Amino acid sequence: MKNSSSHAYDEAFPSEESLSSVHPDLRVGFILMNKFTLAPISGFVESLRFAADKSFRSLQIYCKWDWMTFNDAPVTASCGLSVNPTTLLNVKALKENYDYIVIAGGLLTETRNPPEHVLEILNEIHNAKIPIIAFCSGCFVLGNAGLMDGRKCAIHFTTKEEFSERFPKAITVVDKAYVEDQGIFTCPGGTAIDLAADLIRRHCGDIRAQKSLEYLLINADKHIMNEKEEILLDSPTTYENSIVSKAISFMSENLSAHVTLKEVAEHARTNPRQLHRAFLSSTHEPPSNYWRKLRLEHARKLLANTNAYITNIAIECGFSDASHFILWFKKQYGETPFTYRKRRHEIEKLK
């Protein structure tokens, strides 16, 4: 007799053929150092797992992840768990296949003096403008790579003194679940669920983020209410330059308005030329490009979480017309808004 159980864990898996056309919105590559701390890695990847599929089948549909190690050999977590890499540590693959690279640290004996080839890889990844996330003592690895100079770093209070002595140009923070500063994320430990939820929300939409929080037994409503208390993605506070901070805040509040860069500059109490210089220094791109990316990210959320017409979304996100919006969306994400929305809903048809 056929089992009629509707329990989520008993669901049938869709065929590989049916999944071939569905591409993940969030791709993460984990680089594990020996004696890495398990808690932040498990919290982060379990958040991805719940967000990645329609239910509990653990298919990598909306989210994708791979395990790499610093030496392409099995490594052991600080708790004794052994982990085998699922793919080799390759710079070209890292650049092409992932939206974020995680460097997972743990015991300081393994991260105080990391292998030179790992430092070279991290610098190449950073130069390619791929965000890097450091868990636990992974920030020591980034410090050795020279990537923490002038940046805020969320550090565990037990290692703050040593980190500050080794990397005096870094700005240490001990009271945040995580900090993002110009493409570098640092998380001192814990479960890293806050960071995972914010990344999932950004790339996969509110529904996916909510699902992860609910099934990890996290108070999702409380998490959402407390979001503003954290240093979130695209938060103006991630930039030390006051002109850039004021400008980004103004841009975020006027995504649908036809506001000129001159008006943005006036709000930041500067002129367009100085605004341009400040953005190049802090964000490595002109203010017009940064503003367009904010608008495109907002549009992608609307495409994923609403049924609004593409023309209406284009207007709401400050584009002059749908064709202009479609052109920039495809240039930024490699597909049209229609294709993106269709792809996001394909999983609902899989049984």
Rank of each mutant, 00 (worst) to 15 (best):
E46Y: 08
M148Y: 07
K160C: 06
C139Q: 04
P188F: 03
S242N: 09
T172V: 08
F163T: 02
N127V: 06
D175P: 02
G143K: 04
D53I: 02
L199F: 00
F13M: 15
F250A: 07
E180T: 08
V244K: 03
L94W: 06
K35Q: 12
L32Y: 08
K228P: 04
D321R: 14
N90Q: 05
K351N: 14
T283A: 12
D206E: 11
W65E: 05
R112E: 05
I41C: 05
A177P: 05
K351D: 13
G190V: 10
C153F: 01
K351H: 15
L280A: 08
F279I: 07
L122Y: 02
P337V: 01
D25W: 10
I103H: 00
Y62F: 09
D221R: 11
N226R: 07
A104Q: 05
S212E: 01
G106N: 12
R292G: 08
P40V: 04
S242E: 12
A304I: 14
K211A: 00
I121Y: 06
S323L: 10
E165S: 09
I347F: 10
V173G: 05
D10P: 06
K54A: 11
F279H: 07
Y98S: 06
T270M: 09
R112H: 11
S252P: 12
Q332A: 07
E346V: 09
N84D: 14
I171R: 14
I218C: 04
K349Y: 10
E96H: 08
I103P: 00
Y290W: 08
H258G: 08
F185T: 15
E116H: 14
L26T: 06
H276P: 06
G205Y: 03
A299F: 02
E124Y: 03
G318R: 10
A257T: 14
Q60V: 04
N289S: 11
G150V: 03
P115T: 10
I61T: 14
L32C: 06
A220W: 10
N271K: 14
D221S: 08
R208Y: 01
K246W: 01
L261V: 09
A265R: 15
L216C: 07
S249E: 13
N34D: 15
L142P: 01
K293C: 09
Q274S: 12
R277A: 14
S82T: 15
L88Q: 14
E297T: 10
I155T: 01
Y333I: 01
E11S: 15
V264D: 13
S5R: 07
L232P: 05
N305M: 08
Y178I: 05
E227S: 11
C136R: 00
K331Q: 10
T158D: 13
T86L: 04
A154K: 03
A8V: 08
S4Y: 15
L19A: 13
L296C: 02
F56I: 12
A73K: 15
L303E: 03
L216F: 10
A73Y: 08
V118W: 02
A268H: 13
S281Q: 04
K330P: 03
V102F: 06
N84L: 12
D66G: 11
A134K: 03
I132H: 02
W328L: 11
A196K: 04
K222S: 12
K301W: 08
R300C: 00
G189D: 04
L216A: 06
I31S: 08
L302S: 02
F36D: 10
I224M: 04
